[in-house]
Design a protein around this nucleic acid. Structure first.
Lengths: 219, 219
DNA sequence: CGCTGTATCTACCGGTGAGTAACCTTACGC
DNA sequence: GCGTAAGGTTACTCACCGGTAGATACAGCG
């Protein structure tokens, strides 16, 4: 028996604070995405992060603070991705198309981020909901600007059947829910998903059942 | 001093089991809708129900069972309301219109039911999510049937840009999200909400910005 | 090779809340 | 009336988890 006196399981190597913080945040996003805010335990986060609990409290504060950090980081990442995808100098429908593709691309690549932002943060009231609200409002404004500019260019005034913000909210909601639906139907590609939505919201059922199709114009 | 020996604060009057069960379920829906599954405490449910905790366990089982009962009852109520609103012998767009109005009418009258079904049940994994999935799937099938029948009547085959189920999912999602948005913008009437959505999904942005408007035909 | 500060850990506390055992109380049938 | 079972309660246990105090190891400098 080589009594190799391995004292503790193992002690984490000393690392600069910035690196540890990133590791902890990554672990937290993963754990929160799986269990939700309340069911997630700080013990599990610390275990996944490969670091002991007091480190988390020392670096990122209490559970609530930790969750807030997660939301903010992921929301920033996502907005950044969508903004980067939009090309400002193309027609409104193509802007929407690129935005949608960027969005679904992000969800595909960052499933956990999306779960935290959409499924978890919304339900826990308090400081979290308002944080997500900022994200959604930003998205709605982005879309709303598109719609209103497209509409007013045609001289369309606001009327009962047309509220820029309302429609934008519905659109953003449709995109979100389709992303949710996607989680359980992953055999569809992100491009196809974006295409469905584009056809629905741009053409509408009425045109669709007549056999019309919307397709992206050349880049 | 009139020593009126009021023994305990008060003891609940004896009531038949069915009545108590309804009271408890009502209380549970209310509490769950406010705090979510995890933050809700059985103590609060019992307090709101005006009954002591062991009664809940005796009648409706553990916390998980109680929540399941809530979801099932509210889901049934909602489906029932929507089904009752749909008139089978009118054109597809009018069926959709009536369905949407019934849906938003239900949300308006049963805010708490909606909160439990949409915001709470989804986030807590396990048995709950699947229960809500049944509801959503039923809704999607309802809409999908409408769309596909409308499409196939025109001889429209399934193709990349047109998936009955996908579109129905997007539509249901849009309706859900708009209902959510509504919670924070209650100054809009349910009819206006349904009208927005109807215009969006039936006509599409393309037609909307051209100034077209969809309006319900006479009953 | 010690000294020191900071990174990291072990080991605990205390609150909260699910679930239960044992007891009381009233309506109702006979 | 009175027995009894269903309705109802009090008062507890126990596990889990957020948060922390205080000990420990390690890098870098004199």
């Amino acid at each position: 028996m080589t009594e190799d006196v391995r004292r503790s399981p193992e002690r984490a190597k000393r690392l600069p604070r910035a690196v540890r913080e990133k590791q902890i945040l990554d672990a937290a996003v993963s754990v929160f995405s799986r269990h939700g805010y309340h069911s997630a335990s700080m013990d599990e986060v610390s275990e996944v992060a490969g670091v002991s609990k007091p480190m988390i409290y020392s670096y990122l504060g209490a559970k609530e603070d930790l969750f807030l950090h997660c939301i903010r980081r992921e929301a920033d990442r996502m907005l950044e991705a969508v903004r980067a995808g939009i090309k400002p100098d193309v027609p409104p429908d193509m802007q929407l198309w690129h935005g949608l593709r960027a969005f679904y691309g992000f969800v595909a690549d960052h499933r956990e981020s999306w779960l935290v932002l959409h499924r978890q943060a919304l339900t826990v009231g308090g400081p979290f909901a308002s944080e997500v609200d900022v994200l959604r409002t930003t998205a709605i404004e982005l879309v709303s600007g598109l719609v209103v500019s497209a509409g007013s260019r045609k001289g369309l005034a606001e009327q009962a059947e047309f509220s820029g913000e309302g429609l934008a909210a519905a659109l953003v909601g449709a995109a979100e829910s389709l992303a949710d639906w996607w989680l359980d139907h992953s055999d569809v590609s992100d491009a196809v998903l974006a295409s469905w939505l584009m056809n629905l919201i741009w053409l509408g059922f009425n045109d669709l059942v007549e056999g019309e199709v919307w397709r992206p114009t050349e880049p």
